[in-house]
Design a protein around this nucleic acid. Sequence first.
DNA 1: TTTTAGCAGTCAATCGGAAAGAGTGCTAAT
DNA 2: ATTAGCACTCTTTCCGATTGACTGCTAAAA
Lengths: 367, 367
Amino acid sequence: MAISGRKEKILKAVVERYIVSCEPISSSEIRDENLPELSSATIRNELAALEEMGYLAQPHTSAGRVPTAEAYRLYVDKLMPRKKLSSKELKLVKQYFSGKITEIDDILKKSAKLISEITDLTGVAVSHGIKDAVIENIKIVKLADKLAIVIIVTDQGVLKDGFVELEQGLSDDYFTKASAFISGCFRGYTLKEIDKPDKLIKNITKEYERLFNVIYKLIRDYASGDMNCDVVLEGSTKLLNQPEYSSVDKAKTMLELLETKNQLVPLIDSGSGVSLNIRIGKDENGADVPDCAVVSASYSVGGVNIGNVGVIGPMRMNYAKVVSVLDYIGKTIEELPSGKDGVIKNDNNKDVANSDDEVLENEQKQE
Amino acid sequence: MAISGRKEKILKAVVERYIVSCEPISSSEIRDENLPELSSATIRNELAALEEMGYLAQPHTSAGRVPTAEAYRLYVDKLMPRKKLSSKELKLVKQYFSGKITEIDDILKKSAKLISEITDLTGVAVSHGIKDAVIENIKIVKLADKLAIVIIVTDQGVLKDGFVELEQGLSDDYFTKASAFISGCFRGYTLKEIDKPDKLIKNITKEYERLFNVIYKLIRDYASGDMNCDVVLEGSTKLLNQPEYSSVDKAKTMLELLETKNQLVPLIDSGSGVSLNIRIGKDENGADVPDCAVVSASYSVGGVNIGNVGVIGPMRMNYAKVVSVLDYIGKTIEELPSGKDGVIKNDNNKDVANSDDEVLENEQKQE
DNA sequence: TTTTAGCAGTCAATCGGAAAGAGTGCTAAT
DNA sequence: ATTAGCACTCTTTCCGATTGACTGCTAAAA
């Protein structure tokens, strides 16, 4: 059943007023503030109809109306206006991304913090793994007598968290050659492909067999594990500002949900294809999530997808604002000058590579 | 003024009963449960005296007594019994540290989680920086055309988060030689020493000057920054189980304190000298911390200090239990078989080096 | 002098009912 | 189709009375 224009107007009014007040909206309030040309009785009739249709609910007989999940759904899909950001907000975004940022995780983290700041909700960011990255080079570097580090260079970033213990007395030369050999074995494959072994195991010189096995295992573990799907939360306690979590019990279930970050991944990470995703209320898959909403966007820099950023909060949130902020941040970071020369390093393991600025400084010094 | 034996007995009773009930303790309760040989009137007199001395307080005239911060202080210093852990707890500890753990950050994190689990408070861990580590070796490895990674090996761990951008066309050989040269410049110094420049800058071949400068800056930044002081929280929401945070307002201030992790460092990290530290109530330096208590211990593995672990919670906490658990965990990890052959890697930057187990597995395979 | 029984006094917490207030649904008139 | 008016429902608030838990004090007992 289609919904009349006036009903839409009224529903929109209810949602928007409820978003700011968090209190049931009465017919007379709508008349006074939104539709002075109608009587409250007429609006009451419409409200009753909207309730019948499942868009509104009444906490009790003599209370005003409260939007249902369906109402929010319809609101964001059809009724919501596109908002411009205030100049204050624009300024804040600008300020956040003014410094030199080259680390992907840092961009995501800052985005999460920023959106939390602006919307007063909890900001969430997940970085995509780089399972689709193509291996370009593998270096094995001897560090100490029995310890070496494995560095895997891919087209999307550098992995450098593999250590190898080995027998004594292997020469540097051995490692140079081993690196070359093993690079040759893996080059051109994506991390994901290596998880399915069938193909590349062939012609392994006895000499490098051990190293090869270790590195092979390393890559497989990385590709199969989900450790590389990193969740960052910013401003969890902001939720406590929201009246829906004014009871400690409700706050607790919500915060506990946030604490088990892994549960959040499927909520935020809707695949890199979807640029904007809004989940409201109970979701198909996310079973025992308490009544809340998640708005998330997929971000990319220079065309390369880097992860998802969003907010989580009560269903009653300022969707228009959230969406426009997410949108604007997305545009801002897409256009980030990725380093001075287009290099963005993704090491995908929470590291902070912190030498870029210094390099530049030094360059300047030398001029 | 010295405190009589009977007063001590009564104070101890008040503290211990209050710790479990979180409700003002009455004179008759103490008589019934702790001192049946006295009358409630006598106990009342003693309670009044203890209040006079500053150890007890009354929420209102006709309420029982509540311990003050001074009471807790005296309790932990003098009255508190040493508790044995229950077999259930012993088992839990054992279980937590049964797997192979070689990463220091992982040990700390697990400790924090474990203690949070057992005590139902928030577990905190901070890892000490390794500013006192002595540089043993520096490797610069070319990864791509214009990108190299700097790996600094110290006696306490490996730093591997420095990237360098450079001009094109430098040969591998150049890096080998540069590594050797720069290693020579820095070897033997601690990270901290390098922050004061005076000494080592001399005789720098023009050829390596740029690289030298970059690496110099890298080390200084690391040593001067406090980024390397990492705070891990486990079970923040556990606090919401405590009745003192049953009001959202109080919970909020507390959780906000936890969210700004840096503020926690001075509370937990009492220097590596002190093995056990208990802060109760408002502290000299920690100014605007809400009424709460922090119990922390300094942990080491194989004699090397790795960081501090503790709990944060309301002043009313089970100190005896907390202390004995902290103590026992400390002993347990001190005796951890640090890898199969005593190598513990500390990369101090939140990485997960995850190849140890595999290496061992591979070794077994090969036998 | 110390301990104790007994009692009066204080204060928070609880209960119940009355009153107020907000808002609706329905009906009948426009 | 809209609206004014009214009765009805339900929550919230307020207020006073009651209860119950303790204490502090006093005077007697040990």
